[in-house]
Structure formats: structure tokens, C-alpha cells
Amino acid sequence: MSNLRVELKEKIIEQLNLEDLSVEDIQNDDLLFGDEIGLDSIDALELIVLLEKDYGIKLTDPAEGKEVFKSIETLAQFIESKQ
């Protein structure tokens, strides 16, 4: 189960070019858009692409995205709930 979380961290670091971070730096409950990871609105759009491309999940409601992309944990749970 935690494999998905590690995988997500790896993908996010690569896809969003978070060069200064490694998998160990991101905790499952860290706020992705808060001070800890510091993602922005373009990153959110990239995450939507990542969800569709790698997991076949289409997210169209921006309000839903806000909850889903809160942390690695919420993102992983969302993906698990869709599979």
C-alpha cells in the first residue's frame, strides 16, 4: 500500500522538477500547497495531467482537486478509491 505513496513522491518530484527535494523529504501528510512543499497553480494543473496520464483518472472539478491534492496521503487514498 505504501508503495503507491513512494511512487507518487517520485513522480511528483520528477514531473514538477522539485530538484531540491528527495522522496525522504516529503512526508505523507505534508501540505503540498503549503509552506512545506510549496506547489502553485501550474503544479496543480500538472497533477491533473499526471492523474489522467498515469492512473487514467480524469479530474474536472477544480474544487475536488483542492481536496485531492492536499497531501500525498489524500492523493493516494483518492487513487485507491478509484481503482
Binding site: L16, I42, D43, L45, E46, V49, E52, K53
Partner: peptide
């Protein structure tokens, strides 16, 4: 034809 990247489009 694939998945255009919004981060790249900007």
C-alpha cells in the same frame, strides 16, 4: 497528441 503539459505551455 499525448498529454500536453500546462507547465510547458506557459
Amino acid at each position: 497528441n499525448d498529454f500536453p503539459s500546462p507547465a510547458n505551455f506557459v
